[in-house]
């Protein structure tokens, strides 16, 4: 029975990792990354390594995920003015 659980866990890990890397939209990719960190932490729990699971959940998924979400927000805020080129009357004023 625990073999079923292990196969599910490993399959989900590979599937989510491929999904996070092959996704073009940044936000979706970051969410996939956070979910990947959670599943990796569960894999560490399954391997009976609670301290590594703690570090993976807190740093790998939590802090890195929050920083990446912040970076996506900054990128979006910066990329909105670019598509419309500045007009001449704006440059004079």
């Amino acid at each position: 029975m625990s073999v079923v659980f292990d196969i599910l866990l490993l399959g989900a890990l590979v599937w989510i990792a491929v999904g996070a890397l092959s996704e073009m939209r940044l936000f979706k990719s970051v969410v996939m990354f956070v979910v990947f960190g959670l599943f990796l932490a569960i894999a560490w729990v399954r391997l009976d390594a609670p301290d590594v699971a703690l570090a993976e959940a807190a740093i790998g998924a939590g802090v890195t995920g929050a920083l990446m979400l912040d970076a996506v927000g900054h990128l979006r805020a910066r990329s909105t003015p670019y598509p419309t080129p500045p007009r001449d009357e704006d440059a004079d004023a």
Binding site: V30, A41, G62, G65, A66, L69, D70, V72, G73, R76
Partner: peptide, 18 residues
């Protein structure tokens, strides 16, 4: 820590990346 992580990512999402 998992419980804390869910709240942290939700707050980061609402504050920064919406």
């Amino acid at each position: 820590v998992f419980a804390l992580l869910g709240a942290l990512t939700a707050v980061a999402f609402v504050k920064r990346a919406w």
